[in-house]
Design a protein around this nucleic acid. Sequence first.
DNA 1: TTTCTTTACGCAAACGCTTGCGTGATAGAA
DNA 2: TTCTATCACGCAAGCGTTTGCGTAAAGAAA
Lengths: 339, 339
Amino acid sequence: MDKINIKRLAEELNLSTSTISRALQDSYQIGAETKQRVLDLAKKLNYVPNPHASSLGSRKSHMIAVVIPEVFDSYFAQAINGIESVTQEKGYHVLIYMTHEQFAKEQAILNTFHSGRVDGVILSVSAETKDMTHIQTLHEQQVPVVLFDRVGEALATSKVTTDNREGGYAATKHLLERGCRNIAFLSISRDLSIGRWRLEGHHKALRDYDLPINEHYIIDCTESDEVNGKLIKAFLRKHPEVDGLIATVEKLTISAYQACSELHLRIPEEVKVISFSNSRSAPWLNPSLTTITQPAFEMGKAAATMLCKALKHKNPASVVESVILPSQLIVRQSTGVAI
Amino acid sequence: MDKINIKRLAEELNLSTSTISRALQDSYQIGAETKQRVLDLAKKLNYVPNPHASSLGSRKSHMIAVVIPEVFDSYFAQAINGIESVTQEKGYHVLIYMTHEQFAKEQAILNTFHSGRVDGVILSVSAETKDMTHIQTLHEQQVPVVLFDRVGEALATSKVTTDNREGGYAATKHLLERGCRNIAFLSISRDLSIGRWRLEGHHKALRDYDLPINEHYIIDCTESDEVNGKLIKAFLRKHPEVDGLIATVEKLTISAYQACSELHLRIPEEVKVISFSNSRSAPWLNPSLTTITQPAFEMGKAAATMLCKALKHKNPASVVESVILPSQLIVRQSTGVAI
DNA sequence: TTTCTTTACGCAAACGCTTGCGTGATAGAA
DNA sequence: TTCTATCACGCAAGCGTTTGCGTAAAGAAA
């Protein structure tokens, strides 16, 4: 499987490289049929033009820079800061992409990384992602990828995670110790390893306390805050016995608070809430929020460090390592402590 | 002023391009003296190697991609989302840089944009930035830049801002109507246009209400949350008459809440707080926070749209436009409303 | 039929830098 | 003095596209 470039396409189709180039650009100078042939072969061979050659030739990079003072609050924002803290000193530039939790977008994005657009990838998979072959493929083409936070466990790539099982366990244990007996678990995705581990920790804690595991107490949330709010509200109305809520991601907390507020359920008196969260404002919420917080900045830093290290290697994709950073339980009012 | 490239350097110094290239890479193959000559000339000519040519030649891009599901909360994170929403559909890739509020970093970053690393720039200047020539220079070299939020007003570039004066006015007016008479203004930078306008609106409101303008009530905050907390605390202790606080940026709110908490000052009873903020958790703070909020997502979107539009032009840097988006006063408990 | 347009494509020169290999000097070793 | 390293640099072939210009073929106009 040698280099697949424009010349290769040209030979294969008995055309000149210029024709290929123009066909790919949908130039008016190229006949419809020829265009189609080119497009077909390109797709078949999974051809992605080399962006640097394009940029060099055309004098346009198709890149725009966003320069901002800072970005904080919320897990990923902090992680980006961590990443940037090492990349900038190592002389790397960072491109940023959002999958919006869509598998298709994630695939499309990773697909543009083939012809050397980037030297490496730091990725946190989308909630929809089950199939990991697009990551595997990238890895096989020697572009190193380090997964962080939301990882694909089967993948033989570098990983940075937190002790999610322990986190789920600690969260549940804390609620149990505060007297909760009917704990609902707000989940974003059953597929995400992160969610699975947290759930497993949750179950383990329940077992350790000889409590039953109730499938109905696991609420599968969606992308939409609005929908989630309704979901949680409906759930709480249907299950008035529920006295504890575990939000597996930050955003669900807001929906939960909102739902409780609308139902006039008092936190923590009637329902206690704990969340996996990295929000700086957790201490200042009403009531202040008990959290399991991850070392977001450090995780970003670790991911970037691992990637940069790999990149110095002759065979970057071959150097894989994993770290698991500890998360931290921070007790506040939402689980019923006095000030 | 023609193209300044490696060949040009070579001719100028009577060396070969390979020598130049190696000298710039600090290769062991090049003598110290020669290296220095090259470096000197490069600096003198403000030479920046073309990254695409480098990447093409060396087969490494020095770029890493960060792919994440989403990033929300806080102004810049939301703005990035807005930017990405248009760039992804227009086929641009976005590089992200953090200045950490340092002028030197901002300069250094923009400096790498010369040899076409990017087609355009979306920038929000750092708090330290007074001199705007680095931006001007970029603009003159035909790389279009659109300033957003924190702009340099003298610059003839595109801009996206909010009606900061009106915001400052509205915030002050609101506090005055709630009965405040001694309002402190927490500022991050006197240089930032954004701060100046907000302050001006603040002053105008005071004048309209026939109240004196007290210079001592303007607190110049720093980068450090810790320092800011102390600053505010010390201020409040020294000025017990102060009954209103305007935080010009989100992060100062946390420091303010903290300071009040430590001094056992009750919000809103003793001190009312209003903040320019985009935090999603504002409604859930304790007490919930009255805010002037900017349309962050829309601003990012507008900036990216303007940039993309300019980029289609033959002479991108020449197309400049400005939009001013309205901010919104959202009244909550921190300024004393009942639930 | 001749001439003029289109249409559809190929040629080849950039684009600006990297890098393997080669080579003349200089220096130390024998 | 001769031989062998080492040093310091130049040659030139890439890297994979883009694009201005040229042209054969085919159809339209005359």
